[in-house]
Amino acid sequence: MSEEHILVTDGLSKDFLGFTAVDNVTLKVRTGDIHALIGPNGAGKTTVFNLLTKVHQPTRGTMTYDGRDITRAKPAQIARMGMVRSFQISAVFPHMTALENVRVSLQRELGTSFHFWRSEKSLRVLDERAMELLTMVGLERYAETEVHEMAYGRKRALEIATTLAQEPKLMLLDEPTQGMGREDVQRITELIREVAKSRTVLMVEHNLGVVSALCDRITVLQRGAILTEGTYEEVSSDPRVKEAYMGRAA
């Protein structure tokens, strides 16, 4: 079970109506690493996540997770295998409370999710764990708040708690700190460092401070293809990387 690489993609490509959003990406994520996927806007980072979590079918290429070929797996199945993602645009359940958001994520393991004759009070055994998770992301005071009333940064934090509730083996985070104030960024950075001790993390992140503080390996995408890969020092001193970012800004 202890594969060296928890996730391997081979020649992964995705075309949208003749436009290649992901181009021949061969990515290897080492078990236990915090691995960053960076690149300018529109580079194809989110599309890679969408391919991994089966939102889209790849046009070409294969994906192996935990030693198993997942190229043709179903989306919900991927999550049950332990690969769980967060979304770039916060994905919460807006008309449920923060506690219920986390609880519905914990609930699957009880095995009663099809039981329509059972009272929802039976879910209260999960409340303690749900509160723990909310506390980890600093939301304990908002447990009973309906999520659509919460500020954007807090929704992002909640989404991380909901993702963590799945106890993922591989956690995919799409710009987890985007839209957060500096204090929250600090907190989430620490949290990712903490939870990554027992799992692998693949994250898209624009905040290079966060990337340098956390990540063991970095893959740079540009126009759908891998530009380079390495440690933060290697990647940040690569002139092509600077150009890729500057080129966009100019």
């Binding site: 919900a76 994905a91 519905v104 609930q107 699957r108 999710s113 099809f114 329509f116 929802e120 799945q166």
Partner: peptide, 26 residues
């Protein structure tokens, strides 16, 4: 009872945000 059951909770989640419910393994 169905509405206020574990099943009802999952239904609510699906209605609220279906892609998220999928990504949580449902």
């Amino acid at each position: 009872r169905t509405v206020h059951s574990p099943f009802g909770q999952v239904l609510r989640a699906i209605r609220d945000n279906e892609p998220r419910a999928v990504s949580l393994g449902y």
